[in-house]
């Protein structure tokens, strides 16, 4: 569960802050800061958590899943990026983060499935839906979001946010219910 990574990132940060490493946590969530806050409060990190409520970063960077990590050097140049599956609790990714802290360079290609013809349209539909959502027009929001999912079925950033809005009990009443998510996928929902 990528929401459980914050304490591990905090450990990384406290070990490497003195070497000029900074960490920025981004909670991707149309439902806003209150969904992210419990996990940040629990981890009590010394780095900031910002909230992306409109899928701005998915539009800018082209990704369709989280968790992601982007490593940017002192000049502002991207040196490594992995979209989807970057879990710092796993040894292979902890190693990449440690390598970054020690040397500012990372070996190994980062292959990512980005964009696609319908990505931009799907994000635009999502953002229109978000405007309805913000003003309490849930029906209109969900109609546009479902259109976005149909257009870009591999876009799990959109699909899972729709699931979470419609089925909060499968996400926030304890652990995330992955069995339920597999059923949804089997049904094509």
């Amino acid at each position: 569960m990528c929401r459980e990574q914050l304490p591990v990132w905090q450990q990384f940060y406290s070990r490497h802050k003195a070497q000029g490493v900074e960490v920025l946590s981004v909670a991707v969530d149309v439902q806003g800061p209150e969904k992210a806050r419990p996990f940040a409060d629990k981890a009590k990190p010394n780095f900031p958590t910002v909230v992306d409520q409109t899928n701005l970063l998915s539009r800018l960077f082209g990704f369709k899943a989280v968790p992601n990590a982007i490593f940017i050097d002192e000049r502002g140049v991207i040196r490594y990026a992995k979209y989807g599956g970057f879990d710092i609790r796993k040894p292979e990714f902890a190693k990449i983060a440690e390598q970054w802290a020690a040397t500012s360079s990372i070996e190994g290609a980062s292959e990512n499935k980005l964009g696609g013809a319908d990505h931009a349209k799907a994000v635009a539909l999502f953002q229109k839906g978000q405007e309805h959502y913000r003003q309490g027009r849930m029906g209109e929001a969900l109609t546009l979001w479902r259109e976005a999912v149909a257009l870009d079925p591999d876009n799990y950033v959109i699909r899972k946010q729709v699931w979470a809005v419609e089925n909060p009990d499968k996400f926030y009443a304890g652990d995330v219910d992955y069995a339920w998510q597999r059923q949804q996928m089997d049904k094509g929902l």
Partner: peptide, 15 residues
């Protein structure tokens, strides 16, 4: 604002 630092941006979700 992070120029001059080695930055990691990690993106996650409550869902």
């Amino acid at each position: 604002s992070y120029k001059g630092k080695k930055l990691v941006v990690f993106m996650w979700a409550s869902w």
